[in-house]
């Protein structure tokens, strides 16, 4: 498994940089991943989505679809795309330290 050193921590990642072990994650790492992916500052709104994404994954073993993200995270689809223009579900998963979402929806 490829690894990546970030903030002096060795992280297990996939080829695209998604963390493979959610327990290696913390909020400093989240901010660093966000910066590397074009989000200079993680706001509370970003973190609301990231935490929802992460908790859903930890609870159910899979990341939510963009539909449930829009309905249940407290941030609607339009705003999701404003916060994460390059793809909300994918990016929130990456910043949240969980594997890449597998669904098509």
């Amino acid at each position: 498994m490829p690894t990546l050193t970030m903030l002096d921590t060795m992280l297990d990642v996939d080829a695209e940089g998604f963390l493979q072990k959610p327990e290696q994650w913390n909020e400093e790492i989240a901010a660093e991943i966000a910066r590397e992916n074009g989000i200079a500052e993680l706001t509370d709104r970003h973190m609301q989505v990231v935490r929802y994404m992460r908790n859903r994954f930890l609870d159910t073993g899979s990341a939510p679809s963009i539909r449930s993200l829009g309905k249940e995270s407290g941030v609607e689809i339009k705003e999701l795309y404003k916060l994460f223009p390059k793809g909300p579900a994918k990016l929130a998963a990456k910043i949240g330290g969980i594997p890449k979402p597998k669904g098509c929806i």
Binding site: S65, I66, R67, S68, G70, I77, K78, Y81, I105
Partner: peptide, 18 residues
């Protein structure tokens, strides 16, 4: 069950996503 929305909602969702 697969979280695929009905057509009306889906079309709106695509518009909302830009």
């Amino acid at each position: 069950t697969l979280d695929i929305p009905p057509i009306g909602e889906f079309v709106q969702m695509i518009a909302d996503s830009g």
